[in-house]
Nucleic acid binder design. Structure first.
Length: 162
DNA sequence: GCCAACGTTGGC
DNA sequence: GCCAACGTTGGC
């Protein structure tokens, strides 16, 4: 059973355009250092799952495209590298603490669906984690109903004022 | 730049 | 196990 996800990235660090330009349009989703997010990648993601690519902490926070999960989970190599920004001295190759999956570019949405628009349509997305108060999770599941609802917005125009 | 929300750490 | 301190996230 395929599942749906949402992956956040700050576009100043790694954008959907960056992914699109990578060799093979594929990139290890490294640097995740949150246990809940790790568990989703390590235990729940399947090759072929699809995910929304969300740009966070930028001028217009928005879902901008779709990626697919391109590998099973494996140990995040950046945790072992003291020179890497996400080095974890408590992690060892024998007992890695952090895992990742490879993600593959699928496409841009025909228009970005902004956080403001998603909030304006919250009634149609009951329980959507991205809209939960204080939400900071960078890897989260998306139920099929929400996936379809959001995809259907692509071919509608944004509400006035957004 | 501000600040609320949240997760982690470490002293006790 | 509690909880204060701290660091990070991310919208605004």
């Amino acid at each position: 059973m395929k599942s749906f996800w949402l992956l956040k990235s700050e576009p100043s660090a790694f954008s959907l355009e960056d992914l699109q330009q990578r060799p093979g349009q594929t990139e290890p989703w490294d640097g995740v250092r949150n246990y809940q997010a790790r568990n989703f990648m390590r235990d729940r993601m399947q090759v072929g799952d699809r995910a929304f690519f969300y740009h966070s902490n930028c001028d217009v926070p928005a879902i901008v495209g779709i990626v697919s999960i391109a590998s099973r989970s494996y140990a995040d190599p950046t945790q072992f590298d003291p020179a890497a920004g996400h080095y974890d001295p408590k992690s060892t190759p024998d007992e890695p603490r952090w895992f990742l999956v490879d993600v593959h570019y699928e496409r841009h949405l025909r228009r970005a669906i902004s956080l403001a628009e998603l909030k304006a349509r919250a009634d149609a997305l009951p329980g959507f984690q991205l809209l939960a108060r204080g939400n900071r999770l960078s890897v989260m599941p998306v139920v099929a109903e929400h996936w379809e609802t959001i995809l259907a917005l692509e071919d509608q125009s944004a509400p006035t004022g957004l």
